[in-house]
């Protein structure tokens, strides 16, 4: 669990690092506004991996209802989701 002050930038930075390491892609492959699934970065198992990562890293609880396009539809949406959950 991260203890430093969370900012949009810091969450996005750690998240992108996680994506590159975990999903075998380069930064330039990731389009921030586009769906990670549609762009072929992750598959349905990837959604589960991302959700587990966020729960562990930011100590939030993600039920399957929250795993929707509004919250998980892109890197930007995921970062916003984490911020909302941490408020």
């Amino acid at each position: 669990m991260k203890t430093e002050v969370l900012t949009k930038e810091s969450i996005q930075e750690s998240f992108l690092e996680f994506l590159c390491q975990q999903f075998l892609v380069e930064r330039e492959d990731i389009e921030l506004e586009k769906s990670l699934v549609d762009t072929g970065i992750i598959d349905s198992m990837g959604l589960i991996e991302i959700s587990a990562y966020l729960q562990r890293e930011y100590d939030i609880k993600i039920t399957e209802e929250k795993m929707n396009r509004n919250n998980f539809g892109s890197v930007i949406k995921i970062v916003d989701f984490v911020i909302r959950e941490k408020l």
Binding site: S35, M45, I48, E49, A52, M67, N68
Partner: peptide, 21 residues
């Protein structure tokens, strides 16, 4: 499978969208 897929529940509406391509 990844560690966190030992047990999981899926949001099928989103899964369906995800599998579209």
């Amino acid at each position: 499978i990844p560690l966190n897929a030992i047990y999981y529940k899926t949001n099928y509406a989103f899964l369906k969208e995800s599998r579209q391509s």
